[in-house]
């Protein structure tokens, strides 16, 4: 479904992604693991088109020089030069790290905004799904999103991404900063989202909490692929095990 072929990203002369090759098959949950500044967020932003957007803006005003090379194909189609909105149209939705929400808007306004590219009936249908998935949101729907707790904001952020009706959902560190209880809640939600036929690529620093749900994983360091394989294969790799499984 998603094929990333020798993608490299430079910020000025700093290498953020180094010749990465990643592929995701329809219906899979694939994990990307790595420490801070390993390049996880750059990878996700590059798939969603945000890096390209930033590059074009910087180019226009003569700012930082960003270089993106390589090819990104989604459902067989080259998308590496598409605008973010075109990629959303195709079904690639990014749920950004640190669960950003629109703080001045109510929960329901946030969710409706998530369905910005979709029709009225689709919004209605997705809204029902999101409220079923995260029942607390129904109670909070008229509250300002900025007033919610971190865990609740995470639900709103994931909910917004779902409202956009993803085919491929990119979740950048969905468990970051959440309580163990809330982490379980999100993992449960991810499983349910997959049951809807959504393919998921998610990133985490530590693999252990998402180990039970991922089909395969990639470990990256300094923008470079270190190992990849099924969950079991990663566990059996001594390097990866020590660094990312906390064992």
């Amino acid at each position: 479904m998603l094929e990333i072929n020798s993608v490299s990203v430079f910020y000025e002369n700093a290498l953020a992604l180094n010749d990465l090759n990643i592929d995701v098959q329809q219906g899979e949950i694939v994990g990307v693991f790595g420490s801070n500044s390993a390049g996880k967020t750059t990878l996700f932003n590059t798939i969603a088109g945000l890096t390209l957007h930033l590059k074009r803006r910087e180019q226009r005003k003569g700012g930082e020089r960003i270089t993106i090379t390589g090819s990104i194909r989604f459902q067989g189609e080259e998308i590496s030069l598409s605008k973010p909105s075109d990629r959303v149209e195709k079904g690639i939705i990014l749920c950004r790290e640190r669960h950003p929400v629109f703080r001045d808007n109510t929960v329901e306004e946030n969710l409706r905004l998530g369905g910005y590219m979709r029709s009225g009936s689709e919004i209605k249908e997705s809204l029902q799904f999101v409220y079923d998935l995260f029942p607390p949101l129904l109670r909070l729907k008229n509250k300002k999103a900025g007033m919610l707790s971190g865990g609740e904001q995470e639900m709103v952020a994931v909910g917004m991404a779902l409202m956009a009706r993803p085919k491929l959902l990119l979740m950048d560190e969905p468990l970051l900063g959440l309580s163990p209880l809330m982490q379980k809640e999100v993992v449960r939600a991810v499983k349910k989202i997959r049951q809807q036929g959504v393919t998921i690529l998610l990133s985490e620093q530590y693999a252990r909490p998402v180990m039970p749900i991922i089909d395969r994983g990639y470990v990256i360091e300094n923008g470079t692929l270190v190992v990849s394989g099924t969950g079991q294969e990663l566990m059996d790799n001594p390097e990866a095990k020590a660094a990312y499984f906390g064992m």
Binding site: L50, I93, F102, N105, E109, L113, A164
Partner: peptide
């Protein structure tokens, strides 16, 4: 709503299309 969203958080708005 889209304009207000863009005013609050450009990159999240972008990632929603």
């Amino acid at each position: 709503l889209a304009l207000r969203g863009m005013a609050q958080d450009e990159y999240t708005a972008l990632s929603l299309g």
